[in-house]
Design a protein around this nucleic acid. Sequence first.
DNA 1: TGCCAGGCCGGGT
DNA 2: ACCCGGCATGGC
Length: 223
Amino acid sequence: MPRSTTARTLREFHDALLAAYGPRHWWPGETRTEIMVGAVLTQNTNWTNVERAIANLKSADALDWHRLNDMGHDELAALIRPAGYFNVKARRLKKLVEWVVGEFDGDLDAMFARSTATLREELLNVNGIGRETADSILLYAGGHVTFVVDAYTARVLRRHGLIDEDADYELIKELFEGNLPEDEKLYNEYHALLVEVGKQCCRPRNARCEECPLGAFPHDTSR
DNA sequence: TGCCAGGCCGGGT
DNA sequence: ACCCGGCATGGC
């Protein structure tokens, strides 16, 4: 598909999704710290479960880098239990906290002042922070212009014929970044809209989605 | 009731 | 360079 066609299609998809669902007002979280913690907690996990875990952290007054740093594994794991994978996620959160406190003493202004590319590399070096989590933190907590890709994004693009089966994260990310204006608000909205269409109709098993804002004839309905 | 949810890591081939 | 099992809760 020619580059200009891809660019137009991606813009049309965005506009159709926005018309169908309206602005998503993402990320659902009040502070940068909450967004960063939520990004780890939502790994392969339903957001409603994450909300419970975050509510527990708030009740314990634990959404704070130094408090988190002082907390023991078992205490943290108990608080985030509803989010699932609580032992894994407690470890991952502690790794992130160690880095934020160790490198910046919890100063997020200092942290996000680093360049997008540098910060992305550094986040990826933290054990437990992969590409989607890093990009979510950069975009939604830091306001950095970087496109977030997730399972929904890949499935939607695959079903509507824009990528093939084996397209990996970086390729999909570059498809958006190379064909859209470099605009934080646009990236923010687009990713949130892709999640919404993924939840509404582009689900793993539904054979066909007649109501889909992007059209009713997906290429691949098997997954 | 089984399937799914806004991944990521580590070990094996 | 892939491929796969493990990790866990809660909603439908």
